[in-house]
Computed example of a mutant assay.
Amino acid sequence: MSNATTDTMSGTTTDGPIAVAILGAGRIAHSMAATVRAMMADPRYSRLVSLYAVASRDDDRAREFADRYSIPVSYGSYDDLLADPRVDLVYIATPHSLHAEQSIMCMRAGKAVLVEKAFTVNADQARDVIAASRDTGMTCVEAIWTRFMPSRGIIDGVISSGVIGEVQSIEANLGYPTTGKARLTDPRLAGGALLDVGVYPLNFIDMVMGGRPVARIDTTMSAYSTGVDAQNSMTLWYEDGTMAAATSSMTSVTDRIGSVRGTDGYILCRNINNVESIEVFDGSHQLVSTHAIPAQLTGYEYEVASTATALRAHAIECPEMPHADTLRMMELMDDIRERWGLRYPGE
């Protein structure tokens, strides 16, 4: 990397943009490539990150991807990426079932990682990845973009203002017909609605509740022909009596609304996967206020910037999604799947 020095302890750059490499060349990898390219052209981020490389198991596919986004380096194997000392941060964009192995592999090679959700297949794998982060001192972050977006702070501010009173219940849903994508129906790749889209309503709820412990779970799912969950419903009961309901589906289009309901009013958030508007209503269902969402490049820039900033500070986690939050969410999803009797091959 030009005009950059390297920290001899961690192998990461301390001057010049963080060199980002993308591992995998699927749909979400394209979204991340477009994001980092946009960040490079934005004065807020241009000195922070640079899109340096892409790796795929197919050399031609990697080269085509690199050409499309003007990426300087492409690799036809993951080992080649690991061997390049110029790579600082690896965005892992492969199926869930590969995240743990690849994250640990990257960190042991001196690369920080931004791992696409779901972080891993299960909590045991998450513990292994987090342990590797602590052992190596490498930054390791789950790429659940809603945790990093400005909308999170806006929702928190409305709740803390007291305008809706004390929160009593929460509801969130997300669903898209995606059964045509083989990886999402394959149990060997940890497919199903929960790990693909169900993470968003559960994270929406967890952000509102501030990580408070769940006292009881009532849940059910309908299975796809391959055995993974096609649709699911989850009701979480908290120790203080708050009720939270989450649903997700890979067979139907849902309204994607998140609602936070209090003793004096409620909040409606349109599109919990990337909040588009926040409306506050009083106890008479009258609109009290509407909160605009700041313009964004793609929405992924916030998680990239936070991870790069943590890497510069030699921190192993980000405040928006610390390891404790990632592990808590993986444990919650393990608990839910156990109640369904859904286990993936190899677990």
Rank of each mutant, 00 (worst) to 15 (best):
A324M: 09
R261T: 09
D186F: 10
A190P: 01
S225A: 15
D42W: 07
R68I: 05
G241N: 08
I18E: 10
V20H: 04
K111L: 08
E317Q: 13
T254F: 04
A83S: 15
R86Q: 15
A313D: 13
A53N: 07
A123Y: 08
P213V: 05
S252P: 02
S97Q: 06
M107L: 11
D335W: 13
L81H: 04
N122M: 06
W145Q: 13
R37G: 00
D7N: 13
T146V: 14
M333G: 11
Q168W: 01
V228H: 09
G299R: 06
H285D: 15
V163M: 03
V141Q: 03
A33N: 06
A308D: 02
M149P: 02
C140P: 01
S103C: 14
V197I: 12
P17R: 10
V163Y: 04
Q286W: 03
I217S: 09
P150D: 06
G341E: 08
A19V: 02
R328Q: 12
A93H: 05
H99D: 09
V141N: 10
V90L: 03
M234T: 15
L48Y: 04
P322I: 09
V163D: 01
P294D: 10
A246Q: 12
L82I: 04
T146E: 08
I155S: 00
I159F: 07
N203T: 14
I316R: 02
I28L: 14
F148Q: 12
F119R: 03
G192W: 00
P95E: 09
A4W: 02
V288Y: 09
A223R: 15
L287K: 14
S306H: 09
Q168H: 03
T219R: 10
D135G: 03
N173W: 01
T226D: 10
G192T: 00
M321I: 10
S248E: 05
R27H: 13
Y45P: 00
G180A: 08
H30R: 14
D229W: 01
R68P: 01
C269W: 01
M321T: 13
A193F: 02
T290R: 15
V208Y: 04
T14C: 04
R152N: 11
T185L: 10
A324Y: 00
M149V: 10
V275N: 07
R37D: 00
S2T: 00
S284V: 02
D240W: 04
D80I: 01
P85W: 14
